[in-house]
Design a protein around this nucleic acid. Structure first.
Length: 421
RNA sequence: GGCCCCAUCGUCUAGAGGCCCAGGACACGGCCCUCUCAAGGCUGAAACACGGGUUCGAAUCCCGUUGGGGCCA
């Protein structure tokens, strides 16, 4: 293992920031921290049509909120692919000059015809290398293709999955630069990882099939490839890859639901990684213990119930002041008054922490501290405020009955007294 | 369809040949605590996909089958 670990998280800013991305970021962050290495944030925004600045902001905010601080990356310049076009161009030209890549003038129509032909024969389409020796002049419209070995095998040594072998005859001369001059995803990734001196590419399993292609590019460029580690996917309850259509899955949504960051980080890290039987892990413990050796190979189903349990566990562990600070915005959102007296709010929050899976729940339960029953009616009270009511309501009612005091002033006194306990 | 990956309780997982007639956690059931609901404690049910090997011995290694998934199309 290189002395200086450098890893990166490279999201495409094309939509909301999902748990899958968050977990990839988390594993990279944890690996970097564990090895006292560098965690780089890189924005893969070459898909200009779908990339937005709003999405970049959203990703950055979510990462910060989760506590996944990056050592290099935006807002510093040079970490967005659209700022790096010159670098890709230079590498492409070098590959061309060194005969590792060639110009291809095959039109989309030609390729489409070949594809259909292959399909008709029940074969997978692979570019046949028509232009490989054609020496297409630069004056003609052309794409740039990489010369990929046509025989032999490409072996990927994956830190999680082990040795994976691909037959080279299943690969083809893939496009590095499109006819319109834009570099392709696989090319950018390789050039970026090389120029950013990435030592470990820790990424989602969906990229595994890109790896042999990329390896060919590293070889052509004359660089050593990083260590690859492909993370198992996060699955929806139906065992398909988790996506938007499976409901609340963005980091922002979880935050809005009042789940503490520690719970999300804890839950996500346990989805695929384990540290013996330990279920509760703080960010510090994760940073101290994380290792690729204990990352599982199989996909993991996302289980909201367990997330909520961890949320409760982390809420229970929070000091009252922190609880008060976290609860405050949720009180406001619930239309409840936020007590000016912070100590008072802290006592209220502390009294509710064992029965709140989220801060949204806590705010709901805090309501009775602020909303006295409009009028005391023994019958209605007996009917509505026993079985279903929160604990403190029952106590409150008892005291009201005992004191026969239910004018506004004494009610307020009772609330205060209870909140202070 | 082609290529690749995966396979322990419903779910997340421990397990790197004997410590495992498989341990922990969530969820679920029961009991206890208790003025309610929680929290907490105890407890119950619940899994090594299947078939062949290898080995004195396999959840652990190999092969196959089945199932699931991903990518490409």
């Amino acid at each position: 293992m290189p002395d200086t670990v450098r890893v990166r998280f490279a999201p495409s800013p094309t939509g909301s920031f999902h748990v899958g991305g968050a977990r990839t970021a988390l594993f990279n962050w944890a690996f970097a921290r564990r090895h006292h290495g560098t965690f780089v944030l890189r924005i893969e925004d070459t898909d200009r049509a779908r990339s937005t600045d709003a999405a970049i902001t959203q990703i950055a905010e979510a990462l910060r909120w989760l506590g996944l601080d990056w050592d290099e990356g935006p807002p510093a310049p040079g970490y967005r692919q659209t700022e790096r076009l010159e670098i890709y161009r230079a590498h492409a030209e070098r590959l061309l000059a060194e005969g590792r890549a060639y110009r291809c003038r095959c039109t989309p129509a030609t390729l489409e015809a070949l594809r259909k032909e292959a399909q008709a024969r029940g074969q997978t389409f692979r570019y046949p290398g028509t232009c490989r020796e054609a020496d297409v002049p630069a004056s003609e419209p052309h794409a740039l293709r990489l010369k990929v070995p046509t025989n032999g095998q490409t072996v990927v040594e994956d830190a999680i999955l082990g040795t994976i072998t691909f037959d080279n005859d299943t690969l083809d001369d893939w496009i590095l630069v499109r006819t319109d001059g834009t570099p392709t995803y696989n090319f950018c990734v390789v050039v970026d990882d090389v120029t950013m001196k990435i030592t470990h590419a820790i990424r989602g399993n969906e990229h595994l099939n890109n790896t042999p292609k990329q390896l060919a590019c590293y070889a052509a460029l004359g660089y050593a490839a990083p260590v690859f580690a492909h993370l198992p996917l996060i699955l929806a309850p139906d065992r398909s890859k988790m996506s938007k259509r499976h409901g609340a899955t963005t980091v922002e949504e979880f935050r809005d639901q009042g789940i503490p960051r520690e719970a999300i980080v804890n839950y996500l890290v346990r989805l695929g990684w384990s540290h013996g039987d330990q279920e509760i892990l703080s960010p510090e413990e994760i940073a101290a213990h994380f290792d690729l050796a204990h990352v599982g190979k199989a996909g993991a189903v996302f289980d909201r119930e367990k997330l909520l349990w961890l949320s409760l566990e982390w809420i229970k562990r929070m000091p009252p002041e922190r609880l008060a600070a976290e609860l405050e915005p949720f009180l406001a959102r619930a239309g409840l008054p936020v007590p000016a007296d912070r100590a008072h709010l802290a006592r209220i929050a502390d009294s509710l922490k064992e029965r709140s899976h989220t801060f949204v729940e806590m705010a709901e339960q805090a309501a009775f501290y602020f909303r006295p029953p409009p009028a005391y009616d023994p019958q209605a009270t007996a009917k509505f405020w026993t079985a279903e009511a929160p604990h403190r309501y029952a106590v409150l009612i008892k005291r009201i009955q005992a004191q026969e005091a239910f004018d506004a002033a004494s009610l307020e006194g009772l609330y205060r007294g209870l909140a202070a306990e």
